[in-house]
Computed example of a mutant assay.
Amino acid sequence: MVYLMGIGKTNNEELLKAYHKLIDEGIEVKLVDDPKELISLTVNREVQGSIRGTLSSSEVIPYLKKYIGKFYRASILKNPFTNNYFLLSPVGIDEVDDENGFNDKINIINYAIKFLNNINNTNDNINNNDNNTKCNPYPKIGILSSGRLSDYGRSKKIDKSIDEGENIVKYISNSNKYNAKHTNNLVIKHKGILIEEYLKEGYNIIIAPDGISGNLIFRCLGLVCGIEGCGAVVLNNNNVKFIDTSRNGNWKRYYNAVKFLTGEILNSIK
């Protein structure tokens, strides 16, 4: 099974550290410097999976959109309070439309729920139903907005963000669709801007107000504070085995991204 790592023109020292460590562990990885080739081989299932590595997002993402259509990205980050991984989305700066934010976030929630369920099914196969290591499949979703709930009235922008958060919770809570198997224990809350409360309480899906703020949260947690992560998975109906990684990541992030594709980190997504 072959995994691809994109290699760009700059910032490759950390990527190569990850590459050599993976090779030493017997994992077959290959470096690809052509964005089109990376995506083509991935979406056509000619390789087991790929990561963007240090290739430019502006070069890679357009090819991915061409092949699979609209998608969202969710960063996989380790919760500093619980040591379990969680999903943060959206993190693509253009993935949530200002005029269609509600629908985009509902789509992200649906895809994220499906993602957790797929992980749980994979873990069932890997662990032979060992309940001590199996991932908790039930989504615990935290909706972020632009201020505390008590900040309502301070500006139209904040009010709109808070209203949207409240409406998302009402929609999910009142829809029969989310009473199906694997979602009947679903938890969804809107606590405004208080991301620290979601993390302390072990939420496994956190929805940012938009892609710009989600990208900033990722950079602050992952690239400034050094919280461990595995890159950002693609959320849409194609189930493409591609992980988006930042060009500014350290070797461990590239390493983790490939290890996630191999299935070795699945048990920690809770």
Rank of each mutant, 00 (worst) to 15 (best):
I158T: 05
S268Q: 14
L87D: 00
A208V: 03
E59M: 12
S145H: 04
N179P: 00
I188P: 10
V233T: 02
L4N: 02
L55P: 06
I27K: 08
E201H: 11
N236Q: 04
I106K: 01
N127Q: 13
K140G: 05
E13A: 10
N250W: 04
N256Q: 06
R219A: 05
N239W: 00
V32R: 00
E59H: 13
D210F: 07
R253T: 14
P62Q: 08
G49H: 00
K21T: 15
P139K: 11
T183G: 09
D124L: 12
D24L: 13
I212V: 13
N100Q: 11
I93G: 00
I109S: 04
Y111V: 03
E164Q: 11
D151Q: 07
K134G: 13
N118F: 09
R73S: 02
L235H: 08
Q48A: 11
I217S: 05
N174Y: 04
N174F: 02
G26R: 12
I61N: 09
V29Y: 04
G49A: 04
T183A: 11
S75E: 15
T10L: 10
E25N: 14
G192M: 07
P90T: 09
N176W: 07
D33N: 14
I61Y: 12
P80H: 10
K191W: 15
Y19V: 08
K160Q: 14
N84K: 14
L4C: 04
V187H: 10
I119D: 11
G249L: 02
N83F: 07
N83A: 06
R219D: 01
K36A: 09
N184F: 13
A208M: 05
N136D: 15
T183D: 07
E196C: 11
Y255G: 00
L15W: 01
I143N: 02
E28K: 10
F242P: 00
V47K: 06
N179R: 11
H20V: 09
K36I: 08
A208L: 04
G153T: 03
T183Q: 09
N84I: 10
N11Y: 07
K21D: 15
K21A: 15
N238C: 12
N44V: 07
G142K: 06
C220F: 15
Y138L: 13
I168G: 07
E95G: 02
L221Q: 07
F260Y: 15
H20M: 10
I93W: 01
S213N: 08
N129D: 15
V91D: 00
H182E: 15
G222F: 00
R73K: 06
S161E: 08
S161W: 09
L77A: 02
Y203R: 05
N100F: 13
V96I: 14
R219M: 08
S40K: 06
Y72N: 08
I93Q: 05
Y254N: 03
I119N: 13
I168F: 05
I119V: 14
V240G: 03
T245P: 01
E228D: 12
A208G: 09
T122V: 11
A257V: 04
F86E: 06
I126G: 12
I113N: 06
G229R: 06
L31I: 09
T183P: 06
Y198M: 01
K134N: 15
L87Q: 01
Y178T: 02
